[in-house]
Design a protein around this nucleic acid. Structure first.
Lengths: 189, 189
DNA sequence: CAGGACATTTAACAAATGCTAAAAAGCGTT
DNA sequence: AACGCTTTTTAGCATTTGTTAAATGTCCTG
């Protein structure tokens, strides 16, 4: 739980009573590889804070291809934010792609924290802003750069992912076919 | 100013005193086509709410190409959020691509609103969440779909942009060369 | 309405990437 | 070590997209 509190304290201050209030509501759970944290068509039940492991968000396009939109790893919140807030059906999957350890909060507990802790909106707002910037940075270059550049940037930003994640996920995240990614890897080395 | 208040009221309630407080701090200004709202290398001075016109965010990649990242139009806030909050130098330009009319807020006034109005964080947090979802929806398909599909989706989502925006901006936004976009337009019709 | 500046289209060729299927490599289990 | 299963690589060919430069179109100004 401490890792999460540390994370939160980067974005605002919390006294020990508030920390206790938050801690009391988080439950540590584990997911095994390939297990879903939330599923398309179902209402997301939890916000999670990742203690260990990597998740991906993904969906099936109209050709039936499995497309990975993003990877999320240790020391980050994971949730289908808007669908969780609105408690409506998600359109994407969130899947554990390694064994994972997560602190989860139910909607009720998350709302209670928001109502109880003055400044909670400011903290989550800041986290959100940081996430937006990161997402844009990560995804903008995917649109404009060629395949080799995209892969090199990915390696640079997520060196630890290369050997922990199936190549097919990386290929679809980078917007290319898997054989193309293989070819690129060969050319680089 | 009313258009902005209406927009805000979608995300939370404000009493007439609060509305007055906000209105007193916004100044209506105009920008002509090609004028910058904020510039790379400079600290953003304003948050804006667009009453009329279209902006784009853009930057120059390492080959010197002018790349458009996004379009923003009427009835939306426009700002380099994180750089504005932190008051540090921006890395992108925000440029008017039509004549524009905008309500602007200085950093000081924006902060004063945040300090004065209870629930402001909650309102801006909601707007932020909505923006994140929209940005992701708009940009995710750019990575995985082919050029024709990307253009068709763009036309569907922004039919009014096609005749108001230079094609070169649209081409770079969609991640393709301008002659490719021309070819696609020909094939479609 | 002529001229100039800028935006868009066209064409031909080059390069990159997609697609398919088969081969190879890796991995866990027995 | 051998087997089955999954992942990754390879190869050849088809298709898409990029690149460059010239031609055409459009709009504004004098």
């Amino acid at each position: 739980m401490n890792k999460m509190i540390e994370y939160l304290l980067q974005f605002g201050s919390l006294d020990s009573e508030q920390i206790q209030f938050i801690s009391d509501r988080g439950k540590v759970t584990t997911l095994v590889t390939n297990e879903y944290f939330s599923e398309a068509g179902k209402t997301p039940r939890y916000v999670g804070f990742i203690l260990k492991g990597i998740f991906r968000t993904c969906y099936y396009n109209n050709k039936g291809d499995d497309i990975t939109h993003d990877f999320i790893d240790e020391n980050n919140f994971v949730t289908d934010m808007q669908k969780f807030e609105a408690q409506t059906a998600a359109t994407e999957y969130i899947q554990a792609i390694t064994d994972c350890e997560v602190i989860v909060f139910t909607k009720k507990d998350w709302d209670d924290i928001g109502k109880t802790i003055i400044g909670w909106d400011a903290i989550t707002g800041q986290i959100l802003r940081k996430c937006v910037v990161e997402i844009l940075e990560r995804r903008n270059f995917l649109v404009t750069e060629d395949a080799t550049t995209r892969y090199l940037s990915f390696m640079k930003k997520f060196p630890s992912f290369i050997n922990r994640i199936p190549l097919s996920y990386i290929a679809s995240y980078l917007g290319m076919a898997q054989p193309s990614l293989s070819r690129i890897r060969k050319n680089i080395s």
